[in-house]
């Protein structure tokens, strides 16, 4: 995959940088890393991170130290859909352990693994602020809440039907 923003995305990058006072462009790092992850295959390779560093004229290490700190940045390749299931207290009270076990057995993967067809990666995450709608998981930009095994079935089937 070529690591370079399209002209359109580059405009977005410039608009982000314009939010900060002159010389404070490093503030754009996290928003641009989100863009890079979306554009370059759902994860941040060293190449992607170096590219972001070059855009912001900062050292690569400044990008690595940030990318490794925040849990939303994937530092390894992931499947087309990443299932991030919350397992913190309030979700646990509503059966998130059972949901995680169900997804593991349905997809035949452990937490942190990706299905052989490259469709799904399963991750566990800590509290996502959806405690009243538990159990829940994040998929891309959206939350899937009030999960049950049949709802998980539907979500997975939907992904296969809309490949």
């Amino acid at each position: 995959m070529m690591v370079k923003f399209s002209e359109h995305k580059m405009k977005e990058v410039e608009a982000i940088i314009a939010r900060y006072p002159t010389g404070k462009h490093k503030s754009a790092l996290i928003p641009i890393l989100h863009l890079a992850q979306e554009e370059f295959g759902g994860w941040l390779s060293a190449e992607s991170m170096d590219y972001v560093a070059s855009i912001l004229s900062i050292a690569s290490i400044e990008v690595y130290e940030v990318a490794t700190f925040y849990s939303m940045f994937n530092l390894n390749p992931v499947g087309k859909h990443v299932l991030e299931v919350c397992q913190t207290g309030p979700c646990m009270l509503q059966g998130s352990d059972d949901i995680i076990a169900y997804i593991k057995s349905k997809l035949g993967i452990a937490v942190g693994e990706t299905t052989a067809d490259g469709m799904f990666t399963l991750k566990t995450v800590e509290c996502l602020g959806a405690c009243g709608y538990a159990p829940m998981m994040q998929m891309g930009m959206h939350y899937k809440e009030h999960l049950t095994p049949s709802k998980v079935d539907e979500i997975i089937a939907h992904c296969y039907n809309h490949k």
Binding site: I30, F69, Y70, S71, M72, F73, E126, C127
Partner: peptide
Amino acid sequence: LEIYVQRGAGAY
């Protein structure tokens, strides 16, 4: 006044 929205990236 300008208001900007900045997204974090997963860190309590």
